[in-house]
Deep mutational scan, measured.
Amino acid sequence: ENVVSAPMPGKVLRVLVRVGDRVRVGQGLLVLEAMKMENEIPSPRDGVVKRILVKEGEIVDTGQPKIELG
């Protein structure tokens, strides 16, 4: 899985990584606000952040790609 998608609709509060960052499985990639709760979205695997496809403040839909890992 190279693309991390939104598990639920919500607002991107914070992006916790930058392009080029090495990430580990379970590491937080971003914080999504859904139903007035903050949810940290974890990396599904070890890898390197290739692209960030969302911006802080953006509203995302379920299944929308957010971060691409290499």
Score class of each variant (00 low, 15 high):
Ala6Pro: 04
Glu56Cys: 08
Gly28Ser: 13
Thr62Pro: 11
Lys11Val: 11
Met35Val: 07
Gly28Trp: 10
Asp61Glu: 14
Lys55Pro: 01
Asn2Ala: 11
Lys66Trp: 15
Pro7His: 11
Pro42Met: 12
Leu53Arg: 04
Arg22Ile: 13
Arg22Cys: 14
Gly63Thr: 05
Gly10Glu: 02
Gly57Glu: 05
Ser43Glu: 03
Asn2Val: 14
Pro44Ser: 05
Glu56Tyr: 06
Gln64Glu: 06
Pro42Thr: 14
Met37Ser: 10
Glu40Arg: 09
Pro44Met: 06
Gly28Lys: 10
Val31Gln: 02
Arg51Asn: 09
Leu69Pro: 01
Glu1Val: 14
Pro44Ala: 04
Leu13Asp: 00
Gly63Arg: 07
Val3Ile: 14
Leu16Thr: 02
Arg22Asn: 11
Val60His: 02
Ser43Met: 02
Lys36Asp: 15
Leu29Ser: 01
Gln64Ala: 09
Glu33Cys: 15
Ala34His: 14
Val49Leu: 01
Val12Leu: 04
Gln64Arg: 07
Val31Trp: 05
Gly70Tyr: 15
Val4Tyr: 04
Gln27Pro: 03
Glu40Gly: 04
Arg24His: 12
Ile59Phe: 14
Glu58Asp: 15
Ile41Glu: 02
Ile67Phe: 08
Met8Trp: 15
Glu68Asn: 04
Ser5Ala: 11
Arg45Gly: 06
Val4Leu: 08
Val23Asp: 01
Val60Trp: 05
Val60Pro: 02
Ile52Cys: 04
Ile59His: 12
Met37Ala: 10
Arg18Gly: 08
Gly20Met: 07
Ser43Gln: 02
Gly63Lys: 07
Gly28Glu: 04
Gly20Pro: 01
Met37Tyr: 08
Glu56Ala: 12
Leu13Gly: 01
Arg51Tyr: 08
Arg22Lys: 12
Asn2Trp: 15
Pro9Thr: 09
Arg51Glu: 06
Glu38Ile: 12
Ile67Trp: 03
Ile59Trp: 15
Glu38His: 11
Gly10Ala: 07
Ser5Asp: 06
Met37Arg: 13
Val17Lys: 01
Val15Ser: 00
Gly70Val: 14
Gly20Ser: 05
Pro7Ala: 12
Lys66His: 15
Gly63His: 09
Glu56Val: 14
Arg14Val: 06
Asp61Ser: 14
Met8Gly: 08
Leu29Asn: 00
Pro65Ala: 12
Arg51Lys: 12
Arg24Ala: 10
Ser43Ile: 03
Pro44Leu: 05
Val19Cys: 08
Val19Arg: 06
Met35Phe: 14
Glu58Gln: 13
Arg18Pro: 00
Pro44Val: 05
Ser43Leu: 03
Leu53Met: 13
Arg51His: 08
Leu69Arg: 02
Ile41Tyr: 05
Arg14Pro: 00
Gly70Lys: 12
Val23His: 02
Val15Pro: 00
Val49Gln: 01
Lys55Gly: 08
Val48Ala: 04
Leu29Arg: 01
Gly57Trp: 05
Thr62Lys: 14
Arg24Ser: 11
Val48Leu: 09
Glu40Trp: 12
Val60Thr: 11
Leu32Tyr: 09
Leu53Tyr: 13
Ser5Met: 12
Glu68Ser: 07
Asn39Ile: 15
Glu38Asn: 09
Val15Tyr: 05
Asn2Pro: 07
Asp46Ser: 10
Lys11Ala: 04
Pro44Gln: 05
Asn2Gln: 11
Val54Gln: 01
Ser43Arg: 01
Val19Phe: 03
Arg45Phe: 13
Ala34Asp: 06
Gly28Tyr: 09
Lys11Thr: 09
Leu30Val: 11
Gly63Trp: 09
Ile41Ser: 02
Asp46Lys: 07
Leu53Ala: 03
Gly70Thr: 13
Ser43Thr: 04
Gly70Ile: 14
Lys50Gly: 05
Gly26Glu: 03
Ile67Lys: 01
Arg22Phe: 14
Gly10Val: 07
Val23Tyr: 03
Gly57Asp: 05
Lys36Val: 06
Ala6Cys: 12
Pro42Ala: 12
Val23Arg: 02
Arg14Gly: 02
Thr62Phe: 12
Gly70His: 14
Ser43Val: 02
Leu16His: 03
Gly57Gln: 05
Gly63Phe: 08
Asn2Tyr: 15
Met35Leu: 12
Asn39His: 15
Gly28Phe: 10
Gln64Thr: 11
Ile52Leu: 06
Val12Gln: 00
Glu58Asn: 05
Ser5Leu: 13
Gly26Ala: 05
Gly26Met: 06
Leu53Pro: 00
Asn39Val: 15
Glu58His: 06
Pro9Ser: 11
Lys36Asn: 15
Gly28His: 09
Ile59Arg: 10
Val54Asn: 01
Gly26Ile: 04
Leu30Asn: 00
Lys50Leu: 14
Val15Gln: 00
Ile41Pro: 02
Leu53His: 07
Val60Cys: 08
Val4Ala: 04
Val15His: 01
Leu30Asp: 00
Glu33Val: 11
Pro9Asp: 06
Met37Val: 12
Lys50Val: 14
Met37Lys: 12
Pro65Arg: 07
Gly63Ile: 04
Gly28Met: 12
Arg22Ser: 12
Glu56Ile: 13
Val60Tyr: 05
Pro65Met: 09
Ala34Trp: 15
Lys36Pro: 04
Gly63Met: 08
Val31Gly: 00
Met35Lys: 10
Gly70Ser: 13
Asn39Leu: 15
Leu29Cys: 06
Thr62His: 09
Met8Arg: 08
Ser43His: 02
Ser5Tyr: 15
Arg51Pro: 03
Ala34Glu: 04
Ile52Gln: 01
Asp21Val: 08
Arg22Asp: 09
Gly47Gln: 02
Gly10Asn: 02
Val48Glu: 06
Glu68Arg: 06
Gly57Lys: 03
Asp46Glu: 10
Glu1Gly: 13
Pro42Asp: 05
Met8Pro: 04
Glu38Cys: 11
Val31Lys: 02
Pro65Val: 11
Glu1His: 13
Gly28Pro: 15
Asn2Ser: 13
Arg51Ala: 12
Gln27His: 05
Leu69Ser: 01
Glu33Ile: 12
Val49Tyr: 00
Leu30Arg: 00
Gly57Tyr: 05
Glu68Ala: 10
Pro42Ser: 11
Val12Met: 02
Gly63Cys: 09
Lys55Phe: 11
Leu30Glu: 00
Pro7Thr: 13
Gln27Gly: 03
Gly10Lys: 02
Leu13Phe: 02
Val48Phe: 13
Pro9Met: 10
Lys55Val: 12
Pro44His: 09
Ile41Met: 05
Arg18Asp: 07
Gly20Cys: 13
Leu32Asp: 00
Glu40Thr: 15
Gly57Ser: 04
Leu69Met: 06
Asn2Met: 14
Lys11Tyr: 07
Gly47Tyr: 04
Arg51Ser: 09
Glu38Met: 11
Val17Tyr: 00
Gly70Pro: 03
Val19Met: 06
Ile41Leu: 07
Leu32Ala: 00
Glu38Tyr: 10
Gln27Ala: 05
Glu40Gln: 10
Arg18Val: 10
Gly20Asp: 04
Glu56Thr: 09
Val15Lys: 02
Asn39Arg: 14
Gly20Ala: 05
Pro9Ile: 08
Gly70Asp: 14
Val60Lys: 01
Glu58Leu: 04
Glu33Phe: 14
Pro9Leu: 08
Arg22Thr: 12
Arg45Ser: 10
Val3Thr: 11
Gln64His: 09
Ile52Trp: 03
Pro42Arg: 14
Arg14Asp: 00
Val3Arg: 06
Gly47His: 03
Asn2Lys: 09
Leu13Pro: 00
Arg18Gln: 11
Glu68Leu: 15
Arg18Glu: 10
Glu68Ile: 15
Glu56Asp: 08
Val4Ser: 04
Gln27Tyr: 04
Glu33Thr: 07
Leu32Ile: 14
Leu32Thr: 01
Ile67Asn: 02
Val17Glu: 00
Leu32Glu: 00
Ile41Arg: 01
Val12Thr: 02
Asn39Lys: 13
